[in-house]
Simulated scan of single mutants.
Amino acid sequence: MIVRILGEGQFDVPQDAVTRLNELDAAVEAAVESGDAATFTSALAALLDGVRGAGAPHPAEALDESDSILPPADATLDEVRGLLTDEGLIPG
């Protein structure tokens, strides 16, 4: 799976990391739904760290489409609310 973090680039994330990323994604989604800014900030940071930790940088010269696009670490709760789909931010 290719995950793009806006402002940072793409990461190749192995399929076996998707379950954990979906758990982190669910925490972001719950924080957005509840409007809890403090929890949202820490949940988003954990999700981005999870992608960085599990993934490897995708070659910058490759023009491959991302499977998921994540907001930057400084995104607001409202910005992320606009990005959420029925599957959250991470499909699967």
Rank of each mutant, 00 (worst) to 15 (best):
I69P: 06
A45C: 02
A56F: 01
F40K: 12
D74E: 11
F40P: 14
L48C: 12
T41R: 13
A75Q: 08
A43F: 01
D74P: 06
A54F: 08
E65Y: 00
L70T: 10
S66A: 15
A62V: 03
A56P: 02
D78C: 00
V51R: 02
R52T: 02
L63K: 10
D67W: 00
V80H: 01
E61M: 06
L83M: 15
S42F: 02
D67E: 15
L77E: 10
P72T: 09
A38V: 06
L70F: 02
S66N: 14
S68D: 11
A46G: 09
D74Q: 08
L63D: 15
D64I: 00
A38N: 08
R81C: 15
G82E: 14
L77W: 04
I69D: 13
A54K: 05
P71S: 13
A46W: 00
V51T: 12
R81D: 15
A43Y: 01
F40Y: 09
D74V: 01
G53D: 13
A46T: 09
A73F: 07
P57T: 04
I69K: 05
D67P: 07
I69M: 09
E65V: 13
A43R: 05
A62N: 13
S34K: 11
A45R: 04
G50P: 05
T76S: 15
T41C: 08
L44E: 08
A56M: 01
I69G: 12
L63N: 15
D74F: 05
L70D: 11
G55R: 00
A37F: 03
L70P: 11
L44S: 12
G55F: 01
G50H: 08
S68A: 15
G53W: 01
E79Y: 03
A37Q: 14
S42Q: 14
A38C: 05
F40L: 13
A54V: 09
G35V: 06
D78F: 05
S68Y: 02
R81I: 08
P59L: 04
E65M: 03
E79W: 04
